[in-house]
Computed example of a mutant assay.
Amino acid sequence: MRETAMHHSATEPAPETTTSPSDQPVRGAEEEVAPVADSTERTETPAVLFVCVKNGGKSQMAAGLMRQDLAAAALEGAVVVSSAGTHPGSKVNALSAEVLAEVGADIAGQTPTQLTPEAMREAGHVVIIGAEAEVEPLEGVEIERWEVDEPSERGIEGRARMELVRDDIQLRVRELRERLLG
């Protein structure tokens, strides 16, 4: 807080309290400049919320792969990672958890979560995975959709399908990390 000595007579109007930077002592100027310099630096940790319908497969895979990718790059905690579903199921898809464990990502203990506007605002960046989930836009929230490979459309099912889905999501996660951390 700045103190300014005011000298005026009863007949003179009081001077305005605004001052130009050249009117300020050097110490006051330094105090004024510091917050401006700090405001240009990133002060918040970036966050991403992965969304699919059930939050038992693809969005859980993306969140697990993002955490694993961050850890492998020695960037654990550099991005806040979460996932949710528009109509969450009751558990994580066992095959999804199995193929992720093969690449060092553990989602076996995760629980599907309901998507909320609050979670979207908290993250600020939402990635919808696949074409099925419908998410209403929110002001101030960046939303992108990943149309991931769907091997079942080519007759590929089971473990082979899930490995292809995992590999597609893994490439996208790596690119997203680079964008978020620039």
Results as ranks from 00 to 15, higher is better:
residue 162 M to I: 00
residue 29 A to W: 12
residue 32 E to V: 07
residue 13 P to N: 06
residue 117 P to R: 10
residue 67 R to K: 13
residue 110 Q to D: 15
residue 105 A to V: 07
residue 11 T to W: 09
residue 37 A to W: 08
residue 102 E to R: 08
residue 90 S to F: 05
residue 7 H to I: 13
residue 2 R to V: 13
residue 39 S to A: 15
residue 146 W to D: 10
residue 81 V to W: 04
residue 57 G to Y: 01
residue 121 R to C: 03
residue 67 R to P: 00
residue 70 L to I: 09
residue 146 W to K: 06
residue 108 A to P: 05
residue 164 L to W: 00
residue 173 V to R: 01
residue 130 G to C: 04
residue 34 A to P: 00
residue 81 V to L: 04
residue 122 E to A: 15
residue 122 E to I: 03
residue 70 L to W: 10
residue 16 E to P: 07
residue 73 A to G: 10
residue 180 L to Q: 04
residue 131 A to P: 03
residue 14 A to H: 09
residue 137 P to C: 08
residue 3 E to P: 01
residue 118 E to A: 15
residue 43 T to C: 02
residue 74 A to R: 12
residue 40 T to K: 08
residue 110 Q to L: 13
residue 7 H to V: 11
residue 146 W to I: 08
residue 120 M to R: 07
residue 168 D to Q: 05
residue 14 A to N: 06
residue 18 T to A: 14
residue 111 T to P: 00
residue 163 E to G: 01
residue 68 Q to T: 08
residue 80 V to F: 01
residue 95 L to W: 01
residue 8 H to R: 09
residue 41 E to I: 07
residue 130 G to F: 04
residue 131 A to E: 15
residue 16 E to V: 13
residue 134 E to P: 00
residue 23 D to H: 14
residue 96 S to L: 03
residue 36 V to E: 11
residue 146 W to A: 11
